[in-house]
Write a protein that binds this DNA or RNA. Structure first.
Length: 581
RNA sequence: GUCCCCAUAGUUUAAUGGAGAAAACGUUGGCCUCCGGAGCCAAAGAAUGCAGGUUCGAUUCCUGCUGGGGACACCA
């Protein structure tokens, strides 16, 4: 256990002991021993709210705080214990506090705030899961980023993480684009058109949408094509394989740009027959029933989820059949302690149905399944609709933001090498986009106005990259390669801003825990903003280098620690830092 | 019709039931002789949609209402 978490543990143990002695053993079990950082420095460094205890023993919480403050022992780190209204607040010896936190960060480096609490446990995160009939748009971008950052966070806590991608490469929406290509493709390919494969395929999906308005009969042809596909018709399969590989090549290109990797790829075309056996077995056990028309159905009206067909009358399976099968497949293969599905909020009802069916079928591991639902992304014109081409695609947006980033760099540095320009612009553009989407709580819908939201100032990724580069800049100027942090005199650090920064650094491990506990990377994103803002205030108010040696070294240690935490936090969000902007 | 989610400065968002509701954008006014101005400082701007309730304490929990979004397929 890290020294920092030991500090909290020790305080809590001490506190529990005092409460036991004062008010009896039984009372402990009902209390929440969570220490919080008070809103203002003058109130103390850690605090405990006495409301609940007061209620239990029928005493005013302010009196409780007073009683406790007299009893809780101080030590070399805790120099004062004070009753601050209904709160019991602890004041640290600042020099000891600085030395404790900064030494831990500087020693642990990128391992600061990592832990092994997840060791031996497996988490499977299914995310992205695109349809192979069109390029990925902003909604999936949000999905991709959430899945990636959650995977990073879980890894940080020692979990074994399986990043799974279910490619939806089968079904009527796929044959629609296939049919359009067959009719109007004229044998063109992504190569002949110099187009990214997924864009090329998407063009025909949109084309189908247009043509079907004039000729509704096309829909029947698409259904006919799907039937042929399921029969294994050779001609249809060749076309399907060709177009799918175009689309998937395009996806892989997008993932590469975003820095997203997967450990496991599932293809709907390979698994869509899974689950039938499970359903048939459930039928034998009377967990579901056969309707008069032959379809197999389950009645969930008792759970207010209606009725759901599981196998069609003609014996073919539907989407949920396969998801039942896939859930079991994932369980058998990985025995996950937690299985997360990152899927949009419009499918909340679907997942309630899926999980309920798994429960009824007797799979007790369904209790480890969790639907991480996130809100929709809206454009100024409203909800995105691929069929109408009313979308913003990831690749387009990324290259546009990159172009703007280039312009910004050239404003500041005219004679930059082209390769350097390219790399910096790429990282800045990615930081801008990724941070934008991750700073929202997943449950919130996002209104995205491409004209307005592409910004590199204020609460943005580039602001944080800039802050990090600024810290690196100071080090470069200092000509100090590695800091001998053991000999630093931490009593030099006593400014208000320095103490605020220290409290933030101290809080970092808990922010990461909170992010993972609520499956919400936005806690981390907003924390990083706060850290960046506080650092910049400090930076403008106090020089680091133009100081006597002792102060200079102490401040360098502080900003080095800030740099490390910024970098680690950004990396967990999937954002890479830059040494120069 | 039934169910779910959302509603907080002009705008976009933040706040495990707890300590003057916090930021960013925009607006107004300042700050490069000083470690990077993609920055900083200051000001103006909020009875947290409405009406009740629970609580020592509600932006947070409960009920009703209003407005917005979503879901209720033998689509995926």
């Amino acid at each position: 256990m890290s020294k920092i978490s030991q500090v909290k543990e020790t305080i809590i143990l001490n506190l529990k002991k005092v409460i036991e002695e004062e008010f009896g053993k039984e009372i402990i079990t009902d209390l929440d021993f969570k220490l919080e950082i008070p809103p203002e420095i003058k109130m103390g460094d850690l605090g405990w709210a006495c409301f609940k205890l007061g209620e239990k023993i029928k005493k005013n919480p302010e009196d409780v705080a007073k009683i406790l403050s007299a009893k809780v022992k101080i030590n070399e780190l805790i120099e004062k214990v004070v009753a601050f209204g209904p709160y019991l607040n602890f004041f640290f010896n600042k020099e000891k506090f600085f030395s404790l936190v900064l030494n831990e960060i500087l020693e642990e480096k990128e391992n600061y705030a990592s832990s092994k609490i997840g060791e031996g446990k497996t988490v499977i995160i299914e995310f992205s899961s695109p349809n192979t009939n069109k390029p990925q748009h902003l909604g999936i971008l949000r999905n991709n980023l959430l899945g990636m950052s959650l995977a990073n966070l879980f890894k940080n806590f020692g979990y074994k993480v399986i990043r799974a991608n279910l490619i939806n490469d089968r079904g009527i929406h796929i044959t629609k684009s296939m049919l359009a290509y067959q009719k109007w493709g004229e044998g063109k390919t992504p190569e002949t058109e110099k187009m990214k494969g997924d864009y090329f395929v998407g063009k025909f999906y949109t084309l189908f949408g247009e043509k079907v308005k004039e000729n509704p009969h096309l829909l029947d042809e698409a259904h006919e094509m799907l039937r042929k596909w399921e029969e294994g018709n050779q001609e249809v399969w060749q076309l399907w394989q060709k177009m799918n590989s175009w689309a998937i090549d395009g996806f892989k290109e997008t993932y590469r740009k975003l820095g997203i990797e997967f450990d496991k790829w599932y293809y709907e075309s390979e698994i869509y027959k899974l689950g039938k056996e499970i359903v048939l077995k459930a039928l034998e056990n009377n967990l579901c029933y056969k309707r008069e028309d032959g379809a197999i159905e389950i009645d969930l009206t008792n759970y207010n989820l209606g009725k759901k067909v599981l196998i069609r009358a003609d014996g073919t399976s539907i989407y949920i059949t396969q998801d039942i099968g896939l859930a079991k497949l994932k369980y058998d293969e990985f025995k996950p302690d937690l299985s997360i599905y990152v899927v949009g909020s419009e499918q909340e009802n679907y997942f309630k149905v899926l999980f309920k069916i798994l429960e009824i079928f007797g799979f007790d591991w369904v209790k480890n399944c969790y639907h991480l639902s996130y809100g929709l992304v809206f454009l100024p014109a409203g909800r995105m609709k691929s069929r109408e081409g009313k979308v913003v695609e990831i690749d387009d947006l990324l290259s546009e933001v990159k172009k703007i980033a280039k312009g910004e760099i050239l404003k500041r540095e005219k004679d930059i090498l082209p390769s350097e320009l390219e790399e910096r612009a790429e990282k800045i553009a990615l930081a801008s986009l990724k941070f934008f989407f991750l700073k929202f709580s997943p449950s919130e819908n996002i209104n995205y106005d491409p004209e307005k939201e592409i910004s590199f100032e204020g609460a943005t990724g580039p602001y944080l990259l800039y802050t990090y580069a600024r810290i690196k800049g100071i080090f470069k100027k200092s000509k100090i390669l590695s800091l001998k942090f053991k000999t630093i005199d931490y009593s030099m650090l006593k400014e208000q801003e320095e103490i605020e920064l220290l409290r933030l650094l101290f809080d970092f491990p808990e922010v990461l825990e909170k992010s993972i506990f609520f499956y919400n990377p936005s806690y981390l994103a907003n924390y990083l903003l706060k850290l960046g803002q506080t650092f910049n205030t400090f930076y403008h108010r106090y020089p680091v280098l133009k100081n006597p040696k002792k102060i200079k070294e102490a401040r360098l240690a502080l900003i080095e620690a800030i740099g490390q935490v910024l970098k680690k936090g950004l990396n967990l969000l999937g954002i890479e830092t830059l040494e120069r902007m």
